[in-house]
Computed example of a mutant assay.
Amino acid sequence: MWKTILRRILIMIPELIILSVIVFIISKQLPGDPFTGSISPKTSPEQLHHLMKLNGLYDPWYQQYWNWVVHLFHGDLGTSYEYQEPVSALIASRVVNTFWLALLTMIMTYAIGLPLGLYAGRHEGKLQDTLVRIYSYMTMSVPFFVVLVLGCWIFGYGLNIFPTTGSVSPTANGFFPVLFSRLYHMILPATLGALFATSGITQYLRSGVIDAKNSNYVKTAKAKGVSTKNIYKHHILRNALLPIAAFAGYSITGLLGGSLFTEQIFSYPGMGLLFLNAVNFRDYTVMTALVLLYGFLSLLGTLLSDIALSVIDPRIRVK
């Protein structure tokens, strides 16, 4: 399997190169520039022209791309036009916030979704199953940004239980105060994101459990006198988790990419908010680096999903 993983990683290289070229061309076609209005409203056209020329923005796109690649191989992703700091340092400062929010959201998503799906599938057609399905349909039918806005308004402004902006309180000093403050800021957005994300996991696992418990090998195990607990643990759950494992890699890398809605509504300084600001301010260097990172995460998600499938079901091999 290690040879296959290495081969898949090598295949990512030309895919990322093609992606970087496409992103570079599209970003240069966006109207506007990174300097107009960002320095001073009184900046003269001559000064803007000088800045554009100084930064090579008048060069042909292929020349700009080549210069970007040369700097990339030297470990330089460029300097942000908006924040005036190295792109690598800017992303590194935001990826920490996104990672912790993504980790908490993912833990809560699976902690809620897996028991609900298993519970609904085990009680198919009963009241318990109906209640879980109603919950799933409600979370699927309501737009995500509506859930975020309502949660922010009710628990943030109405009840004033959780903070609605930032990632750490300015008054927090020391390791443990900063840790608790960071966790406190993440609870509300992570909970809302988890509640929204559990619907897919719940429905997939419920369907998997229903299919598995009606299969011949489960009926055979029951006929042999195997306990219900062992049947669900060793036969039903393993096979029902296959659809969940198929999307696990995408879920992990998708969360690491940051949520535009969550980070925008809660003013959470993560990767999603950074990308949105980069598009708004035509920060080409940040845009290109982030899209390339997102592309890598998507390809990595595919590989992780395949590996997870092969771990759960040894009959499946990564090819």
Rank of each mutant, 00 (worst) to 15 (best):
G225I: 10
V226F: 06
S227N: 08
S227D: 07
T228K: 12
T228L: 08
K229R: 14
N230Q: 05
N230I: 04
I231V: 07
I231E: 00
I231H: 01
K233E: 02
H234D: 00
H234G: 00
I236V: 09
I236D: 02
R238Y: 00
N239A: 04
N239P: 00
A240K: 03
L241C: 05
P243N: 12
P243A: 09
P243V: 11
A246C: 05
A246S: 14
F247E: 12
G249F: 03
G249L: 04
G249P: 05
Y250A: 14
Y250E: 14
Y250H: 13
I252H: 08
T253H: 09
T253N: 08
T253W: 09
T253E: 12
G254R: 07
G254F: 10
L255Q: 11
L256D: 12
G258H: 08
L260S: 06
L260G: 04
L260P: 06
F261P: 12
T262K: 07
T262V: 15
T262W: 03
Q264R: 15
I265V: 15
I265H: 06
S267V: 11
P269H: 14
P269R: 09
P269I: 12
G270C: 14
G270S: 11
M271I: 15
M271F: 15
L273C: 03
L274H: 10
F275A: 13
F275D: 02
F275W: 03
L276W: 01
L276R: 06
L276A: 09
A278I: 01
A278L: 03
A278W: 00
A278C: 02
N280K: 05
N280Q: 07
N280T: 07
F281K: 03
F281D: 03
D283T: 00
D283S: 00
Y284A: 01
T285A: 10
V286M: 00
T288S: 14
L290I: 15
L290Y: 11
L290Q: 10
Y294L: 05
F296L: 06
L297V: 09
L297I: 07
